[in-house]
Design a protein around this nucleic acid. Sequence first.
DNA 1: TTGTAAGCGTTATCAG
DNA 2: CTGATAACGCTTACAA
Lengths: 340, 340
Amino acid sequence: MSKYRSAPTLDDVAKAAGVSTATVSRCLNTPQQVVEATRERVLSAVDSLGYTPNFAARVMAAKRSFTIGAIIPTMENAIFARGLQAFQEEIRKQGFTLLVSSSAYQPEAEEDQIRTLVARGADGLLLIGHDREARIYDYLDRQKVPTLVAWSYLPDKPIPSVGFDNRKAMKALANQVIGLGHTRLATISGISKGNDRARLRIQGIRDAMTEHGLPQDGLTVSETSYEIENGAEVFENLMLRDPPPTAVLCGNDVLAVGAVRQAQQMGLRVPEDVSITGFDDIELARIVSPALTTVHVPHREMGRKAAQELIHMIETSSEGHSIELSTNVVTRDSLLESNR
Amino acid sequence: MSKYRSAPTLDDVAKAAGVSTATVSRCLNTPQQVVEATRERVLSAVDSLGYTPNFAARVMAAKRSFTIGAIIPTMENAIFARGLQAFQEEIRKQGFTLLVSSSAYQPEAEEDQIRTLVARGADGLLLIGHDREARIYDYLDRQKVPTLVAWSYLPDKPIPSVGFDNRKAMKALANQVIGLGHTRLATISGISKGNDRARLRIQGIRDAMTEHGLPQDGLTVSETSYEIENGAEVFENLMLRDPPPTAVLCGNDVLAVGAVRQAQQMGLRVPEDVSITGFDDIELARIVSPALTTVHVPHREMGRKAAQELIHMIETSSEGHSIELSTNVVTRDSLLESNR
DNA sequence: TTGTAAGCGTTATCAG
DNA sequence: CTGATAACGCTTACAA
């Protein structure tokens, strides 16, 4: 046996079809440039050999990878799943492939993954939120990799973003809570360091309080990482205070679900004894009972628009511009007027 | 200006450090092969230039990518998230990078993604379940890409699998249901075509019925795709039958949650009026009320072991062997003895 | 220990 | 419309 059989290359196809490699390449990439007869011959050779183009070689030669990288903080809960799915569907439609990594909310891991994705020749990058070391933005700039931020709309930042105003969104919810007569508020927030969404949501609550003339010490802020158990644990501590808050605004639905379950464990009725709200409006929010009053985020629309904008940036080498999406408060059963 | 600045290459580093490209390459890949003094010089050049190796070029030259691809049926619900996270953590620890795509339960999409991943030079592949066209296995074999299946343990298949026996697992649960006196059973299954897990779970129910001497027509089988709404819809139809089933075994927790919520909507008490069970034991199962009696799957362990086995296959070019993990029924509140 | 140079499989430029 | 051929950036024998 002459050669241990390995994957067929362009050259093999070319030989089989009796043409040059250039022609085969053209058949695959710009078929209109080659006459019908040869094209057919080539394609059938491709077929019978089971040829698949080698991606690395293609990237190297074309300096394009038709790949977009996305780094999300976590895959463990559903917060990013739906938006990312829509993002993927859209870029796929336009001929791009998505590479996803999750940073587990660790900035160093994210930085590492950004470099990995760039080294892999990603044509563009989708990141979540704006908070990260300036060094990273320098790097991205130097490497000239089009980058877009989602889940946060902050048009004054150097990088364009497709998302919503977290501060305004939470403020709207807080306004509703306060309008119901609540004055002793608490929030179970995600870790705000390195997380603009978390930080701005807290700000939003403060904005609403100021607007209603409530003193800022009427708000207790607790930060914890986004897991159901943590929501439960923090909630318990909160309710042990004297006096306890009458409404607990959670940084997301996951934490809120933890809070609701802990309340039930403690024999507290939601919302009669204490109101609890979420943020995101993921499936969980409707499943828990009482169903959560929360902030609805248009995840699919965000994913789709982010994809369109990022691809546009890639194709036209333009700066890209920010797009604001609107959120709305969805009223369900976990928020009621204050009874004291 | 001579050249528009672009990413520095090995050559740039070599020049800056006054060595050959080979030496730079060695410093990066096999540092022990180069003497301390030069190594330091090189590394500082790498640093000051902000050099990042070009991945495509490296793959092409080394014929290794240190990349593993995984294709899961969906990212939208949490079924695969936890196991995949563990898989990723483990391969990362061993210096590999994970590329994930989701096929949305579409065989053609999966095939497409397999080819994409292989073309990208993935060193190995993780797939979910065994059911797919023989053509794909031929292709994988021809391309010599180590491939492992997870979420299903079927040692007689040509491809090794790390997972659990879906049939046995569901049989254990069904045994418990039948032991509680239920004789009119129904199952809301995922689409079984192309999905061995779904198919085998149904088989498991039948096994249990046979063992208990129940007639096979005591089971109504409905198939639908894995979404909460579908679980609800199918459940409604099921309960409209006369007589309705007294226990509904769902193909997974997502469908079960849909069923539970629909039951409540219809004014039926779970489990007093009808028992409902899940499969997977994802977070949802504990959150819904009543909490689901379901089959616990050791997702993290499965992910970790699959990673180890696949890497072992890659490193030793060996066939790989199947690993069976055990599941267990977790008893919560959605299953009760039959009252008729 | 280090350098030289031959690939790796494509795409793209330039002739024909 | 098609064919040569020069990149692309890196790894790895083989030599020195």
